[in-house]
């Protein structure tokens, strides 16, 4: 295990992992923001009586 640490292959994988980081965080935020916007739109047009659970 120790001979693989910081090896050429490890550094290559590290660079790929940074790409994965960018795509992954971007994908999560994109998904979450879309959900958030849809929920905000529904809440705006839903109106109606206050939910009983919150009364």
């Amino acid at each position: 295990m120790f001979d693989k640490m910081f090896s050429e292959e490890a550094i290559e994988n590290f660079k790929i992992a940074l790409e994965i980081m960018g795509k992954g965080m971007g994908g999560i935020f994109a998904t979450i923001i879309i959900i958030m916007i849809i929920i905000m739109i529904i809440a705006k047009f839903s109106g109606g009586k206050k939910d009983k659970k919150q009364q």
Binding site: K4, M5, N13, A17, L18, I20, G24, M25, I28
Partner: peptide
């Protein structure tokens, strides 16, 4: 969820 990706990068650097 950032910690996931930070850990992936770290694990890669450590030879996984």
């Amino acid at each position: 969820q950032f910690g996931i990706f930070f850990a992936i990068a770290l694990a890669a650097l450590l030879g996984f």
